[in-house]
Protein backbone atom coordinates (compact mmCIF):
# COMPACT_ATOMS: atom_id res chain seq x y z
CA UNK A 1 0.00 0.00 0.00
CA UNK A 2 2.79 2.39 0.89
CA UNK A 3 4.52 1.46 -2.35
CA UNK A 4 1.36 2.24 -4.29
CA UNK A 5 0.97 5.47 -2.41
CA UNK A 6 4.58 6.44 -3.05
CA UNK A 7 4.15 5.65 -6.73
CA UNK A 8 1.12 7.93 -6.84
CA UNK A 9 2.99 10.70 -5.07
CA UNK A 10 5.79 10.47 -7.60
CA UNK A 11 3.57 9.91 -10.61
CA UNK A 12 0.21 11.45 -9.82
CA UNK A 13 -0.94 11.04 -13.42
CA UNK A 14 -1.05 7.26 -12.92
CA UNK A 15 -4.60 7.37 -11.61
CA UNK A 16 -5.85 9.07 -14.73
CA UNK A 17 -3.75 6.89 -17.04
CA UNK A 18 -4.99 3.68 -15.45
CA UNK A 19 -8.54 4.96 -15.42
CA UNK A 20 -8.30 5.98 -19.06
CA UNK A 21 -6.93 2.53 -19.98
CA UNK A 22 -9.77 0.81 -18.16
CA UNK A 23 -12.33 3.09 -19.77
CA UNK A 24 -10.82 2.43 -23.16
CA UNK A 25 -11.06 -1.32 -22.61
CA UNK A 26 -14.65 -0.98 -21.47
CA UNK A 27 -15.38 1.16 -24.50
CA UNK A 28 -13.97 -1.53 -26.78
CA UNK A 29 -15.94 -4.25 -25.05
CA UNK A 30 -19.08 -2.20 -25.11
CA UNK A 31 -18.80 -1.59 -28.82
CA UNK A 32 -17.64 -4.86 -30.34
CA UNK A 33 -19.27 -4.06 -33.64
CA UNK A 34 -17.63 -0.67 -34.14
CA UNK A 35 -15.63 -0.50 -37.33
CA UNK A 36 -11.87 -0.14 -37.10
CA UNK A 37 -12.18 3.33 -38.54
CA UNK A 38 -14.32 4.38 -35.59
CA UNK A 39 -11.42 4.64 -33.16
CA UNK A 40 -9.19 7.13 -35.01
CA UNK A 41 -12.18 9.43 -35.24
CA UNK A 42 -12.41 9.46 -31.48
CA UNK A 43 -8.93 10.97 -31.22
CA UNK A 44 -10.02 13.81 -33.46
CA UNK A 45 -13.09 14.43 -31.35
CA UNK A 46 -10.95 14.40 -28.25
CA UNK A 47 -8.53 17.03 -29.57
CA UNK A 48 -10.22 20.30 -28.49
CA UNK A 49 -10.81 19.09 -24.95
CA UNK A 50 -7.29 17.67 -24.81
CA UNK A 51 -5.86 21.04 -25.80
CA UNK A 52 -7.92 22.95 -23.26
CA UNK A 53 -6.61 20.61 -20.57
CA UNK A 54 -3.01 20.74 -21.78
CA UNK A 55 -3.07 24.53 -22.13
CA UNK A 56 -4.48 24.93 -18.63
CA UNK A 57 -1.65 22.91 -17.13
CA UNK A 58 1.51 25.10 -17.20
CA UNK A 59 0.00 27.97 -15.21
CA UNK A 60 -1.38 25.53 -12.63
CA UNK A 61 2.03 23.88 -12.29
CA UNK A 62 3.48 27.30 -11.51
CA UNK A 63 0.99 27.80 -8.69
CA UNK A 64 -1.46 29.92 -10.67
CA UNK A 65 -4.57 29.28 -12.70
CA UNK A 66 -5.86 30.44 -16.06
CA UNK A 67 -9.62 30.66 -16.33
CA UNK A 68 -9.36 32.18 -19.79
CA UNK A 69 -8.04 29.09 -21.61
CA UNK A 70 -11.47 28.02 -22.87
CA UNK A 71 -12.21 31.46 -24.33
CA UNK A 72 -8.70 31.55 -25.80
CA UNK A 73 -9.36 28.32 -27.70
CA UNK A 74 -12.71 29.60 -28.89
CA UNK A 75 -11.29 32.97 -29.87
CA UNK A 76 -8.58 31.39 -31.97
CA UNK A 77 -11.27 29.31 -33.68
CA UNK A 78 -13.33 32.40 -34.36
CA UNK A 79 -10.42 34.48 -35.60
CA UNK A 80 -9.67 31.78 -38.15
CA UNK A 81 -13.22 31.38 -39.37
CA UNK A 82 -14.52 34.93 -39.10
CA UNK A 83 -11.43 37.03 -39.77
CA UNK A 84 -8.66 35.21 -41.56
CA UNK A 85 -10.59 33.02 -44.00
CA UNK A 86 -13.01 35.75 -45.12
CA UNK A 87 -10.00 38.03 -45.69
CA UNK A 88 -8.60 35.47 -48.07
CA UNK A 89 -5.84 34.40 -45.74
CA UNK A 90 -6.10 30.65 -45.98
CA UNK A 91 -2.58 29.40 -46.51
CA UNK A 92 -1.32 27.41 -43.54
CA UNK A 93 1.92 29.41 -43.72
CA UNK A 94 -0.01 32.56 -42.90
CA UNK A 95 -2.84 31.25 -40.71
CA UNK A 96 -0.75 29.16 -38.34
CA UNK A 97 1.80 31.86 -37.46
CA UNK A 98 -0.94 34.45 -36.97
CA UNK A 99 -2.99 32.20 -34.73
CA UNK A 100 0.00 31.10 -32.68
CA UNK A 101 1.18 34.70 -32.29
CA UNK A 102 -2.27 35.68 -31.09
CA UNK A 103 -2.20 32.87 -28.53
CA UNK A 104 1.21 33.93 -27.32
CA UNK A 105 0.05 37.52 -27.03
CA UNK A 106 -3.04 36.71 -24.95
CA UNK A 107 -1.10 34.29 -22.77
CA UNK A 108 1.57 36.89 -22.18
CA UNK A 109 -1.02 39.48 -21.18
CA UNK A 110 -2.30 37.05 -18.56
CA UNK A 111 1.26 36.38 -17.45
CA UNK A 112 2.07 40.06 -17.07
CA UNK A 113 -1.09 40.67 -15.06
CA UNK A 114 -0.37 37.81 -12.69
CA UNK A 115 3.41 37.59 -12.45
CA UNK A 116 4.46 41.21 -12.85
CA UNK A 117 1.47 43.27 -11.77
CA UNK A 118 0.71 40.72 -9.04
CA UNK A 119 -3.03 40.42 -9.58
CA UNK A 120 -4.53 37.31 -8.01
CA UNK A 121 -4.45 34.78 -10.85
CA UNK A 122 -8.09 33.82 -10.57
CA UNK A 123 -9.36 37.39 -10.75
CA UNK A 124 -7.02 38.56 -13.50
CA UNK A 125 -7.80 35.64 -15.78
CA UNK A 126 -11.51 35.92 -14.98
CA UNK A 127 -11.42 39.50 -16.27
CA UNK A 128 -9.50 38.41 -19.35
CA UNK A 129 -12.11 35.69 -19.80
CA UNK A 130 -14.89 38.27 -19.88
CA UNK A 131 -12.99 40.34 -22.42
CA UNK A 132 -12.20 37.37 -24.66
CA UNK A 133 -15.75 36.06 -24.60
CA UNK A 134 -16.88 39.54 -25.53
CA UNK A 135 -14.47 39.74 -28.45
CA UNK A 136 -15.49 36.26 -29.57
CA UNK A 137 -19.17 37.14 -29.52
CA UNK A 138 -18.46 40.35 -31.33
CA UNK A 139 -16.65 38.56 -34.11
CA UNK A 140 -19.17 35.75 -34.32
CA UNK A 141 -22.60 36.89 -33.13
CA UNK A 142 -24.10 33.74 -34.63
CA UNK A 143 -22.46 30.42 -35.38
CA UNK A 144 -21.10 30.58 -38.91
CA UNK A 145 -19.47 28.01 -41.15
CA UNK A 146 -16.04 28.22 -42.68
CA UNK A 147 -13.06 26.00 -43.24
CA UNK A 148 -10.36 25.05 -45.71
CA UNK A 149 -9.10 21.63 -46.74
CA UNK A 150 -5.81 21.77 -44.83
CA UNK A 151 -7.60 22.63 -41.61
CA UNK A 152 -10.01 19.74 -42.11
CA UNK A 153 -7.01 17.53 -42.75
CA UNK A 154 -5.98 18.01 -39.12
CA UNK A 155 -8.84 15.87 -37.86
CA UNK A 156 -8.89 13.39 -40.72
CA UNK A 157 -6.89 10.20 -40.87
CA UNK A 158 -4.23 8.72 -43.03
CA UNK A 159 -5.18 5.12 -43.39
CA UNK A 160 -6.11 4.23 -39.84
CA UNK A 161 -3.74 6.79 -38.35
CA UNK A 162 -5.41 9.89 -36.94
CA UNK A 163 -3.63 13.11 -37.91
CA UNK A 164 -4.98 14.65 -34.69
CA UNK A 165 -2.59 12.45 -32.71
CA UNK A 166 0.30 14.20 -34.41
CA UNK A 167 -1.09 17.62 -33.53
CA UNK A 168 -1.66 16.59 -29.92
CA UNK A 169 1.95 15.47 -29.89
CA UNK A 170 3.10 19.03 -30.64
CA UNK A 171 2.70 20.43 -27.10
CA UNK A 172 4.37 17.32 -25.76
CA UNK A 173 7.30 17.89 -28.07
CA UNK A 174 7.53 21.49 -26.90
CA UNK A 175 7.32 20.29 -23.32
CA UNK A 176 10.04 17.70 -23.87
CA UNK A 177 12.34 20.36 -25.25
CA UNK A 178 11.55 22.58 -22.28
CA UNK A 179 12.27 19.71 -19.94
CA UNK A 180 15.76 19.56 -21.34
CA UNK A 181 16.23 23.16 -20.33
CA UNK A 182 15.76 24.27 -16.77
CA UNK A 183 12.36 25.84 -17.47
CA UNK A 184 10.13 23.00 -16.32
CA UNK A 185 12.19 22.39 -13.20
CA UNK A 186 12.06 26.09 -12.40
CA UNK A 187 8.31 26.18 -12.98
CA UNK A 188 7.69 23.22 -10.70
CA UNK A 189 9.90 24.76 -8.03
CA UNK A 190 8.14 28.12 -8.37
CA UNK A 191 4.79 26.42 -7.95
CA UNK A 192 5.80 23.90 -5.30
CA UNK A 193 7.63 26.20 -2.95
CA UNK A 194 7.93 29.77 -4.20
CA UNK A 195 9.84 30.88 -1.13
CA UNK A 196 12.50 28.19 -1.37
CA UNK A 197 12.69 28.79 -5.11
CA UNK A 198 13.15 32.54 -4.71
CA UNK A 199 15.81 32.03 -2.08
CA UNK A 200 17.71 29.69 -4.40
CA UNK A 201 17.69 32.26 -7.17
CA UNK A 202 14.97 30.81 -9.40
CA UNK A 203 13.54 33.64 -11.54
CA UNK A 204 10.05 32.94 -10.23
CA UNK A 205 8.24 35.87 -11.86
CA UNK A 206 9.73 35.25 -15.30
CA UNK A 207 8.97 31.55 -15.16
CA UNK A 208 5.40 32.14 -14.05
CA UNK A 209 4.85 34.73 -16.73
CA UNK A 210 6.05 32.32 -19.39
CA UNK A 211 3.78 29.57 -18.09
CA UNK A 212 0.80 31.69 -19.13
CA UNK A 213 2.42 32.42 -22.48
CA UNK A 214 2.88 28.71 -23.02
CA UNK A 215 -0.76 28.10 -22.10
CA UNK A 216 -1.78 30.70 -24.66
CA UNK A 217 0.33 29.02 -27.31
CA UNK A 218 -1.20 25.60 -26.66
CA UNK A 219 -4.69 27.09 -26.53
CA UNK A 220 -4.24 28.59 -29.98
CA UNK A 221 -3.36 25.18 -31.42
CA UNK A 222 -6.50 23.92 -29.71
CA UNK A 223 -8.39 26.59 -31.63
CA UNK A 224 -7.08 25.15 -34.91
CA UNK A 225 -8.32 21.72 -33.91
CA UNK A 226 -11.69 23.07 -32.85
CA UNK A 227 -12.04 24.77 -36.22
CA UNK A 228 -11.10 21.59 -38.00
CA UNK A 229 -13.70 19.63 -36.08
CA UNK A 230 -16.56 22.12 -36.14
CA UNK A 231 -15.83 23.66 -39.55
CA UNK A 232 -17.54 26.68 -38.14
CA UNK A 233 -17.20 29.37 -35.54
CA UNK A 234 -19.20 29.14 -32.34
CA UNK A 235 -18.72 31.46 -29.38
CA UNK A 236 -21.19 29.71 -27.13
CA UNK A 237 -18.88 27.02 -25.78
CA UNK A 238 -16.29 29.29 -24.21
CA UNK A 239 -17.31 29.15 -20.57
CA UNK A 240 -18.16 25.44 -20.60
CA UNK A 241 -14.70 24.65 -21.89
CA UNK A 242 -13.10 26.54 -18.97
CA UNK A 243 -14.69 24.27 -16.44
CA UNK A 244 -14.19 20.97 -18.25
CA UNK A 245 -10.56 21.83 -18.97
CA UNK A 246 -9.83 22.46 -15.30
CA UNK A 247 -11.66 19.27 -14.44
CA UNK A 248 -9.35 17.33 -16.74
CA UNK A 249 -6.29 18.93 -15.16
CA UNK A 250 -7.47 18.00 -11.67
CA UNK A 251 -8.30 14.48 -12.77
CA UNK A 252 -4.82 14.21 -14.26
CA UNK A 253 -3.29 14.54 -10.82
CA UNK A 254 -1.88 18.04 -11.23
CA UNK A 255 -2.02 19.74 -7.86
CA UNK A 256 -3.79 23.10 -7.81
CA UNK A 257 -1.37 24.24 -5.15
CA UNK A 258 1.27 24.05 -7.86
CA UNK A 259 4.53 22.22 -8.30
CA UNK A 260 3.25 18.76 -9.09
CA UNK A 261 1.86 17.20 -12.23
CA UNK A 262 2.36 17.47 -15.94
CA UNK A 263 0.87 17.50 -19.41
CA UNK A 264 0.50 13.76 -19.66
CA UNK A 265 -1.86 13.66 -16.69
CA UNK A 266 -4.01 16.38 -18.19
CA UNK A 267 -4.22 14.50 -21.48
CA UNK A 268 -5.19 11.35 -19.60
CA UNK A 269 -7.71 13.36 -17.61
CA UNK A 270 -9.23 14.75 -20.78
CA UNK A 271 -9.29 11.24 -22.21
CA UNK A 272 -11.16 9.95 -19.16
CA UNK A 273 -13.83 12.60 -19.40
CA UNK A 274 -14.15 12.04 -23.08
CA UNK A 275 -14.33 8.25 -22.82
CA UNK A 276 -16.93 8.36 -20.08
CA UNK A 277 -19.07 10.51 -22.26
CA UNK A 278 -18.50 8.22 -25.21
CA UNK A 279 -19.19 5.09 -23.23
CA UNK A 280 -22.38 6.39 -21.71
CA UNK A 281 -23.58 7.40 -25.14
CA UNK A 282 -22.65 4.04 -26.58
CA UNK A 283 -24.41 2.17 -23.79
CA UNK A 284 -27.32 4.54 -24.25
CA UNK A 285 -27.17 5.40 -20.59
CA UNK A 286 -29.30 8.49 -20.19
CA UNK A 287 -27.08 11.50 -20.81
CA UNK A 288 -28.20 12.91 -17.50
CA UNK A 289 -25.83 10.62 -15.61
CA UNK A 290 -22.82 12.06 -17.37
CA UNK A 291 -22.72 15.20 -15.24
CA UNK A 292 -23.06 13.25 -12.00
CA UNK A 293 -20.19 10.98 -12.94
CA UNK A 294 -18.00 13.90 -14.06
CA UNK A 295 -18.60 15.67 -10.82
CA UNK A 296 -17.90 12.70 -8.58
CA UNK A 297 -14.73 11.89 -10.51
CA UNK A 298 -13.56 15.46 -10.18
CA UNK A 299 -14.19 15.72 -6.45
CA UNK A 300 -12.70 12.29 -5.89
CA UNK A 301 -9.54 13.04 -7.79
CA UNK A 302 -8.90 16.38 -6.14
CA UNK A 303 -9.48 14.87 -2.69
CA UNK A 304 -7.14 12.02 -3.53
CA UNK A 305 -4.45 14.34 -4.80
CA UNK A 306 -4.81 16.71 -1.84
CA UNK A 307 -4.61 13.93 0.72
CA UNK A 308 -1.60 12.38 -0.99
CA UNK A 309 0.11 15.70 -0.64
CA UNK A 310 -1.06 16.52 2.85
CA UNK A 311 1.88 14.98 4.71
CA UNK A 312 4.42 16.85 2.70
CA UNK A 313 5.37 20.48 2.64
CA UNK A 314 5.26 20.67 6.39
CA UNK A 315 7.56 23.44 7.55
CA UNK A 316 8.68 24.12 11.04
CA UNK A 317 6.42 26.52 12.87
CA UNK A 318 7.74 30.05 12.69
Amino acid sequence: MTGFRAALVRRPYLIAVVLAAILLAVNVVAMPSAAASYWPGLIANLAPLAFVAIASTPSVLGGGIDLSIGPQVVLSNIVIVMVLLPAGIDSPWAVIPIVLALGILIGTINGVLVALLRFPAMIATLCVMFVLIGIAQRLAPQPAGGSTPWIEFLTSRAGLFPIAALVIAVPFAVWLVLRRTSFVRNLLAAGGDPIAATSAGVPVSAVRLLSYTLGGLFASIGGLMLTSLLRSADASQASTLVLIGLAAVALGGTAFTGGRGGLLGSLAGALCIFLIQNLLTALSVPAVWINVIYGLLLVGSVVLSASLLSQKNVRQPV
Binding site: S182, L188, A189, G192, I195, A196, N313
Partner: peptide
Protein backbone atom coordinates in the same frame (compact mmCIF):
# COMPACT_ATOMS: atom_id res chain seq x y z
CA UNK B 1 25.70 32.21 -1.78
CA UNK B 2 23.58 31.86 1.34
CA UNK B 3 22.32 28.93 3.38
CA UNK B 4 19.51 29.62 5.80
CA UNK B 5 18.44 28.10 9.08
CA UNK B 6 15.16 27.02 7.57
CA UNK B 7 15.62 23.97 5.35
CA UNK B 8 14.55 25.39 2.01
CA UNK B 9 14.23 22.36 -0.23
CA UNK B 10 11.48 22.00 -2.80
CA UNK B 11 9.94 18.75 -1.63
CA UNK B 12 8.48 17.67 -4.95
CA UNK B 13 11.86 17.50 -6.66
CA UNK B 14 14.82 15.17 -6.68
CA UNK B 15 18.07 15.61 -4.83
CA UNK B 16 20.07 16.68 -7.85
CA UNK B 17 17.33 19.08 -8.93
CA UNK B 18 17.37 20.66 -5.52
CA UNK B 19 21.13 21.04 -5.52
CA UNK B 20 21.07 22.87 -8.84
CA UNK B 21 17.82 24.73 -8.20
CA UNK B 22 17.94 28.27 -9.48
CA UNK B 23 21.41 27.98 -10.94
CA UNK B 24 20.31 28.18 -14.54
CA UNK B 25 18.21 31.22 -15.29
CA UNK B 26 14.85 30.79 -16.99
CA UNK B 27 15.80 28.33 -19.72
CA UNK B 28 19.53 28.06 -19.75
CA UNK B 29 21.23 24.90 -18.78
Amino acid sequence: ATVFQEVLVVTGQSIVENVWLGADGVFGS
